[in-house]
Design a protein around this nucleic acid. Structure first.
Length: 803
DNA sequence: AGCACGCCGACT
DNA sequence: GTCGGCGTGCTC
């Protein structure tokens, strides 16, 4: 007797543990850990993951597994273990951890419906028949809408109706029909000879097969022989061909021809950087390397050389890239070097395409996975290296449960596989650099740019002085002059403004009223294109008021500048310039991001204006000027990482200029020209920035000196949320180490979001063995309030956003 | 989460 | 009496 321990797909803490099921004899030996199965759970049927098998049950009366959903496990032993680790460390449900590691196509939908169930026909009250209207089943919800609840329950009790459950898979394997020769070529040829002379089409198709003697898809045949189905079916009847359904991959890069490329020779500096990595690959030492290399120093080439070595050893590699850097340019680079050994996983793919890329990995058809955050879970079994490019990027932290950081997951996986990790960046996160300094990570440096191009020269413009000099435009005189110059020379300019929309808030000069989102405690942004006001947090959109909603006055003024307004101003100042605007509003459609970049690359634009999405990956030879319109945005955020983010953004965007033959220039406009982040970014002084910022962090008891845990309680009623967070606070106090600091509780910086009030608590700790046990208890303690009253309790270990 | 079971007010 | 509302506890 084999018993399977199964974690069921029910998102509730009370069932967040394995349940035991009998493996039915017919599936004996076929069901393995890591497979999805369908099991009875209470009166329902649910999906579950087999986490382990054992020989005997610890209790009587086990139910049996209904059926497996997979032929092969979808989670390896290592990933099952990783799932346990994830749920422990991010405090999420096991089932949520497992699902986060798999493509969405493997999730399922549940359907509850009614079927007529024999019963005694004489007792059939007739209206059930009416209910079904000749259908053999009806959805539960639809039945509830049509018939009294009582009548349904009566029908069920009396045996006239039966409730059934169905589990529907979301993703599908795409199949295509192929026509395959049914006999060897010689007998095929003989059969061809005995075809009647009048069957012209059949002869034609048979000859085609003789010439290309292999399987052909229906699509291919249709192209050559538009009316192929009749004759082909005749050939099938005559035993010459047979029909076959074959699995097909959806290939999003199908129409992109990629030229193969050879590895570039490394510079002595790159060679030196890659050497310790090579040793670790060879010895299987799970070292973490921090590759600190200035922009344009050729980090990617170092990655590729390491990957090549890994592939030569018959092992596999994962490369993580921030989502917005996952451009066709970037993908092409890997595809050209490693050909069809590469699978690409990013959010631009459809669920089906992602599923197909994932299956290529699962089936060992590829050895390299390039992708955004979740690609860290690529189901390789013989990893030789994990690379995280732009490791400082905050997109590596998932902001929904499971709230994991890809860097932590990568390091954990590397330990299981005994392989190295490379974290690469020109502006490493403070956390990583501090670890490198302590020797926890190994520091590798690239200080020279490829081709020895100097870093662009950066000038800071004090916008307060511009104002005093009577310039009220968004552009300083210096920046305008340089832009004019680029336009005349036919070179390109990149402008960064980290704010979309037209105006960031609307204020009535009559009464001081500002427009706030009806669902959130956030000012609304005016969008001129649509003449609407939008909430950038919940997506609310309303028409822009002509009069003040409070006093009826007509003096509504628009403050704060977004990309739309800059675009408008640009058109006035430089009517001849072709401006490409790139922000969430212009890139929402699939593929538009790529299209805009391609247009700019091909010279269809003189100025690229955008939010931070343009700061990364751009590697265009004709960009010689970068303008940062307002470096202060973000600096005033209530976030201890504001200075770090600003430094990183300024450095990254500066790196976009002058990457090739033409030298680059950067103009940074700011109202805070003396801020250390701005000044140190101008001179590319990362080390000085690091020292300064570390001091700030030390004084504020922030990472990397302390770890953080953020607890947020949400509820539509402010009092309820406040009450719960206070109860949590008093529960924690006294239970924690005396060096652990509890900040708050208090209202969140965004005190209301999507009609829910938000209260929070920030915990700072160094080492506290009591903390995690206490955190785990919190959700259990308030489980009633969570299910009954809709109280939300969110615990974020190492949060990146404190809003 | 979603379902059964069980205990109380309202209507036929 | 019976129906249907919601609170409680369980799911291998």
């Amino acid at each position: 007797m084999t018993v399977a321990s199964v974690v069921v797909d029910v998102k509730n803490l009370s069932v967040d543990r394995p349940f035991d099921y009998l493996v039915p004899p017919e599936w004996e030996g076929l069901i393995e850990p890591g497979m999805r199965v369908i099991v009875p759970f209470g009166s329902r049927k649910v999906q579950g993951f087999v986490v382990s098998l054992k020989e005997k049950a610890e209790r009587e009366q086990l139910k049996a597994i209904i059926e497996p959903m997979d032929e092969q496990p979808v989670l390896t032993e290592e990933l099952l273990e990783l799932g346990e680790w994830l749920s422990e460390n991010t405090l999420c449900l096991k089932i949520a951890a497992f699902q986060a590691m798999l493509p969405a196509a493997l999730k399922v939908n549940y359907e509850k419906y009614l079927v007529p169930a024999g019963g005694n026909p004489g007792e059939d009250p007739g209206y059930f028949r009416e209910l079904f209207q000749n259908r053999d089943k009806i959805g539960w919800d639809e039945a509830l809408r049509l018939v009294e609840k009582g009548a349904l329950y009566r029908g069920i009790r009396e045996g006239l109706l039966r409730v059934e459950y169905r589990i529907k898979s979301k993703g599908t394997v795409r199949k295509e029909t192929y026509y395959v020769p049914a006999v060897p070529k010689e007998s095929f040829s003989e059969k061809r000879a005995s075809l009647p002379k009048t069957a012209r089409k059949q002869l034609e198709i048979a000859d085609f097969y003789l010439e290309h003697f292999h399987a052909h898809s229906a699509a291919e045949l249709r192209e050559r022989f538009p009316q192929f189905s009749g004759p082909v079916n005749a050939l099938i009847r005559k035993g010459m061909l047979k029909k076959e359904e074959r699995e097909q991959y959806r290939d999003p890069y199908e129409h992109q021809a990629v030229e193969p490329s050879r590895p570039h020779p490394l510079t002595p500096e790159q060679e030196e950087a890659v050497r310790p990595v090579r040793r670790a690959i060879e010895s299987g030492e799970p070292d973490v390397f921090l590759l600190y290399g200035v922009t344009g120093s050729g980090k990617t080439e170092v990655y590729m050389h390491a990957i090549r070595q890994v592939l030569e050893k018959g092992k596999e590699a994962i490369v993580l890239v921030p989502e917005i850097a996952l451009t066709p340019q970037m993908v092409a680079r890997f595809k050209s070097r490693f050909g069809d050994k590469v699978a690409v996983l990013h959010s631009g793919l459809s669920a089906g395409e992602k599923y197909d890329e994932w299956r290529k990995i699962q089936r060992k058809e590829v050895q390299v996975a390039v992708g955004a955050r979740s690609a860290v879970f690529a189901p390789f079994e013989n990893l030789g290296i994990i690379i995280i490019d732009e490791e400082h990027e905050t997109t590596y932290k998932q902001e929904e449960t499971p709230r994991y950081h890809a860097r932590d997951v990568a390091i954990r996986r590397a330990q299981s596989h005994r392989c190295p990790v490379i974290l690469g960046s020109a502006t490493p996160s403070l956390e990583s650099f501090a670890r490198a300094k302590k020797g926890v990570y190994k520091l590798l440096k690239l200080e020279k740019r490829m081709n020895n191009m100097p870093l662009p020269s950066v000038e800071i413009v004090d916008m307060r002085k511009e104002m005093h000099a009577g310039n009220r435009l968004m552009f300083s005189r210096l920046l305008m002059e340089k832009m004019k110059d680029r336009l005349e020379r036919g070179e390109q300019t990149v402008l960064l403004l980290n704010r979309r929309g037209y105006a960031t808030f609307l204020l009535c000069r009559g009464c001081g009223y500002t427009m706030v989102c009806p669902n959130c405690e956030v000012t609304l942004t005016y969008h001129k294109v649509s003449d609407t006001v939008k909430c950038h947090y919940c997506g609310y959109e309303g028409s822009a008021p002509k009069r003040c909603p409070a006093c009826g006055g007509e003096h509504i003024r628009y403050f704060g500048t977004g990309t739309q307004k800059v675009e408008e101003e640009l058109k006035k100042l430089f009517p001849e310039a072709r401006v490409i605007r790139m922000d969430v509003d212009t890139t929402r459609r699939k593929g538009s991001h790529e299209k805009l970049l391609k247009d700019f690359y091909e010279g269809k634009g003189d100025i690229l204006l955008g939010t931070q999405m343009i700061a990364k990956g751009l590697d265009f030879p004709n960009i010689t000027l970068v303008g940062v319109l307002s470096a202060d945005i973000g600096l005033n955020m209530p976030d201890f990482r504001a200075g770090e983010r600003t430094f990183q953004l300024l450095t990254q965007v500066s790196g976009r200029a002058g990457r090739h033959r033409l030298p680059g220039e950067v103009v940074i406009q700011t109202y805070a020209p003396d801020h250390y982040s701005v000044k140190l970014a101008r001179d590319y002084r990362f080390l000085d920035f690091y020292r300064h910022e570390m001091n700030m962090r030390k004084r504020g008891n922030y990472p990397p000196y302390y770890y953080l845990v953020l607890i947020v309680v949400t509820h539509e009623n402010a009092m309820t949320a406040a009450k719960i967070i206070h109860q949590i606070a008093s529960f924690l106090r006294g239970r924690l180490d005396e060096r652990t600091i509890v900040l708050g509780p208090g209202a969140s910086p965004i005190s209301r979001l999507n009609n829910k009030y938000r209260y929070q608590l920030l915990i700072k700790y160094k080492r506290d063995p009591n903390l995690f046990p206490a955190l785990k208890q919190i959700s259990r303690l308030f489980i009633k309030e969570q299910t009954k009253d809709g109280v939300g309790i969110h615990i974020d270990v190492n949060p990146y956003s404190l809003l």
